[in-house]
Write a protein that binds this DNA or RNA. Structure first.
Lengths: 195, 195
DNA sequence: CTTCCAATAGAACACTGTCCTATAGTTATA
DNA sequence: TATAACTATAGGACAGTGTTCTATTGGAAG
């Protein structure tokens, strides 16, 4: 007879590992995020992380890519109205970050040991940024945002949203009514960038 | 005869350790930041970090406090003119962060394993935030900033500056002329918050 | 039914934070 | 000055890290 743990079908291992990794990061942050812990939660042998990814680094890169792809989707829900698209992008930025703490941690909040995003990872990040830049350009076309380098302006939007969310997730938020204050941040942003 | 390393005088050990810790964080970030590495760079036995601090956590807490104290000083250079005080606080925010990468990393950018700031650490952070809040209040008194909860408004200022700096230090800056774009960020901020 | 891929268990390595012990340099006190 | 108290040092130990290697065996394809 066999004492072995039941074998996870090959085609499920990868997604199980990613699901477990996100679960750990969502719940505990980077602290308990180890190869062995991820494998345990996934119900999979540690070696799976080396066979299906390239170790911890490869797993992080997969999370990075998944994170930025989802981020681009969350920001890019266009309705045609430039103003509401910009506003909802701002709101969705925070919404995505709060509902995907783990992925946002990998993308923006934590420096994982030895981790460096791959070329595809950088590309995914650049594509997410491009979504934002397009929104800015649409806003400029509609005279909602002032003229100027759209990359620079998009960077300002990104910085502003990220700063708020980063401090909120780190617990460095001294504001009491955080939701309303984020609305105020977005209004401030559009007021400060208007044509 | 003795093969031992020369002994560091007691009253110098603490500052040597802190100096070494900052040096490592400034140069390599959190990656090579280990008890043994800090001790080596400081020219001190590893045990010093346990005798003079409470291990790695205590060292991080000391850096946290030093960082926020310096931060408060950097932001709080008041000249009497509310407008220029606000503007220079914004500029000094980034200047401090860039010239104290290591401390800024401890304060805002990295989640160190098991680290939780002490009560005194939190107090130092709150005091630094208060400096910002006072600047906002002065701005409100001078009708440079709109009425409203000064804590919430200060949080917006902090978020905005932090977001830009965090992305810049993380290398997620797509803008070309970063210095000018930060100036634009501050102008956007004051435009968006004006009375 | 046989073959072959891959998921498993388990050991091993260097490196991490942490703690313990023993030694010896430094300082303070008698 | 001589003794005592303090503390910086060396070095080992432990449980966890990421990583790699081996051997076994479940399960799917032929």
């Amino acid at each position: 007879m066999s004492n072995r743990a039941p074998r996870t079908p090959s085609h499920q291992v990868r997604e199980e590992v990613i699901r477990a990794a996100i679960e750990i990061l969502d719940t505990n942050g980077p602290d308990g995020f180890t190869v062995r812990a991820v494998a345990d939660v996934a119900g999979v042998a540690s070696m799976a992380i080396y066979n299906h990814f390239e170790g911890m680094n490869g797993l992080l890169d997969a999370l990075w890519k998944e994170g930025f792809d989802g981020f681009a989707s969350a920001l890019g829900t266009t309705t045609g109205n430039a103003r509401s698209d910009l506003m909802s992008a701002g709101l969705n930025y925070r919404r995505y970050a709060l509902s995907h703490r783990g992925l946002y941690t990998v993308m923006f909040l934590h420096t994982f040991k030895h981790f460096k995003a791959s070329a595809e990872g950088d590309y995914a990040a650049a594509k997410a940024f491009q979504v934002l830049e397009n929104l800015v350009r649409n806003g400029q076309r509609e005279k909602l945002i002032r003229a100027g380098n759209s990359i620079d302006l998009a960077q300002l939007v990104w910085s502003t949203c990220h700063g708020f969310v980063a401090l909120e997730l780190k617990g460095e938020n001294f504001s009491t009514n955080t939701d309303e204050n984020y609305d105020a941040l977005l209004l401030m942003l559009f007021e400060g960038l208007r044509a």
